[in-house]
Amino acid sequence: MTAVTLIHGLNLAAIYGLMAIGISILWSSVGMINMAHGATFAASGYAAWQVSLIAQPLINTWFGTGLDASLVMGATMVASGLVAGALFGGLIFMLAYLPIHEKANFAVRSLIVTLAINLATVQLLLFFFGPRQRALPKIFGFGRTEILGISVRNDQIGTIVATAILMLVVVIWLKRSRKGLEITAMMQNPEGAVLSGISVRWTALPVTMLTGALAGLAAILLSQTVFVSPTAGALPLIKGLTIALLGGLGSLPGAIMGAILIGFLEAIVGSISFLGQRYVLFSQFLFIITVLIIRPRGLGGLLDETRESRNV
């Protein structure tokens, strides 16, 4: 395995990890499979593109075209992606959680509702922006940097570092803060949470917004290499879902581990000449299916078991 493959794998792992973690957190705390995660992805991409169109001339007039300008541009992109993702997460909360969370069969229902949101969003994006692909401004520039004797693209470093930092923050936040405790409490026992003064209805809002923001960030980072299009969310959604599945739905370490495995698998299979890019998806799914048949709860899926044991 060459160093380039390693970096490429890490880069992919970072983006998939962002998607998978969002799906996993939402499932573990709210009990909802978010099929609109891909829609969040696409919508945030478009929001960032729209913002970049408006902000580009402003930034150019204020900061010129130097390093300052590209830094400010990068910050604007990331911020707009995060905000758009969070807002979209809020929308998902309003439509797919609030009206049905007290009704029977919530897991399947919310899955259907989020599917409908996904369908509608893709069509709306097609309707307003057309099927043309758009390119986001490169926030990390085009350059390459030498790290330990390896020449690496700037956007790859940026993606890996940004994701690692963000994931660390999220994990610490979930472990240490009052909100994190609130989310854990709700996930383990909704009635107990309510008796501790936690509002089950309103705890879900920050969770959906957080996962939406993660998808928004993933959109900005992935759009450094891939264009933004209305259907851009489908593949990240499916990959995120399957990785979350591989990690064991609801398990954060599992999701991160799954993302790293799948990212490296993609990088390695892609770099082997006689297999090539076309067998990437194939190998990934075969790997996931094999793992799931051996371990039906995924790599780290202990959560469901604790839930079940409580219900007995």
Partner: peptide, 23 residues
């Protein structure tokens, strides 16, 4: 209210669990 039986969070530590009360 302390509910009947043990309506508690099985996956938390005792300290975390008590902190829930001080929410």
């Amino acid at each position: 209210l302390t509910p009947q039986g043990d309506a508690i969070f099985p996956g938390m530590t005792v300290a975390q669990h008590l902190d829930c009360g001080a929410y």
